[in-house]
């Protein structure tokens, strides 16, 4: 059973994105790279509303935590359990230990974005009774298929659409740049229109800084729509459509294309999307790129 998961930047999106199965949301105190930060009340409301529509709410808790943040994390996870969220996506193993104590390991999905690159790590974590893992973005299509063939228990997922993440730092790098040149930095913080370009290259990489630190994304949007049916055939269940940096209308349109692709597996919807949005830069991430240790 496929699970089409989409990030949202408004609770209204739950009604708008009718074709999604699940919604991935979070609070900035416990998560990074969110499309929007939701308060506890909003999360509670989201769960009630989504459940009334037979949809699921997944909570992104993908931050790396310092010891002095753990007490609040525990309270937050108790709260998430109490409102019956459907899954918690995590990358810091503190979340695992706390979930074990709360007896909600079966709601955990490992989602570090860079570190889930072999099927044995997936099996190791799933054997510890978690629900599943999301395969990292820097793996090849062949490796995704290997995961699918070798991971027999639990749920496997992939990012199927969105800017792919490539840098997570605790450093406040945009602030530091402007401080270094004694310029005001306030309007560039929590600003999703900032990009950086390496001086000898052309690519403009989105960069985002908030209280948690700095994240950098590739300039290409991962567009895996042409592979979703083969992923499903091979047993991958969770598909994340990440709309960070995107507006509701555009994401609604992308979601509709995914629904069409699921109904008509033989059509190539990536071409239609590329034609409809010629100013966007789409790519296939590392599906066909072999990375090594030398250039």
């Amino acid at each position: 059973m496929k699970d089409l998961i989409i990030t949202i930047n408004s609770l209204n999106n739950i009604d708008v994105y009718k074709d999604a199965d699940s919604f991935l949301i979070g609070n900035e105190k416990f998560a990074v790279r969110l499309a929007k930060s939701f308060t506890s009340n909003e999360i509670c409301e989201a769960v009630k509303h989504a459940h009334s529509l037979n949809k699921k709410i997944y909570i992104n808790v993908n931050k790396i935590f310092l010891e002095n943040e753990i007490r609040d994390l525990k309270d937050y996870m108790v709260f998430l359990k109490s409102i019956n969220v459907d899954a918690i996506f995590f990358s810091d193993f503190a979340v695992f230990t706390i979930a074990k104590d709360l007896e909600i390991l079966d709601r955990l999905v490992y989602y570090s974005e860079t570190q889930m690159v072999n099927y044995m790590d997936a099996n190791t974590l799933i054997d510890l009774k978690i629900k599943g893992v999301i395969i990292s973005k820097e793996v090849t299509l062949d490796n995704i298929y290997t995961f699918a063939a070798k991971v027999k228990k639990g749920s496997l997922g992939v990012n199927i659409y969105g800017y792919y993440h490539m840098f997570y730092s605790k450093r406040k790098l945009i602030r530091n740049y402007f401080l270094n040149y004694q310029k005001d930095y306030s309007k560039y913080i929590s600003n999703k229109k900032i990009t950086i370009k390496e001086k000898t290259r052309q690519e403009l990489y989105p960069i985002f800084q908030d209280e948690n630190g700095t994240n950098i994304f590739n300039d290409e949007i991962l567009l895996g729509i042409d592979y979703i049916n083969s992923f499903i055939d091979k047993g991958i269940k969770m598909f994340i459509i990440d709309g960070i940096f995107e507006e509701e209308d555009y994401m609604q349109s992308i979601l509709e294309y995914f629904v069409l692709a699921l109904k008509n597996p033989n059509s190539k919807y990536s071409t239609l999307i590329k034609n409809k949005y010629p100013f966007k830069k789409y790519g296939a991430a590392f599906y066909f790129k072999k990375i090594g240790i030398t250039s």
Binding site: I64, S112, E113, T114, Q115, V117, K137, E138, Y164, H165, M166, F167, Y168, S169, K170, R171, L173, E198, R201, I216, N218, F286, K289, K290, I291, G292, I293, T294, S295
Partner: peptide
């Protein structure tokens, strides 16, 4: 500059895998 293990700048910019010993020090 990043949390260790959470940086793939090198992977993306040079096809050298930072988490397999190929970091190009893009930072």
């Amino acid at each position: 500059s990043s949390f260790s293990g959470r940086c793939t700048l090198s992977n993306n910019m040079t096809l050298r895998d930072a988490n397999r010993g190929g970091c190009a020090h893009s930072c």
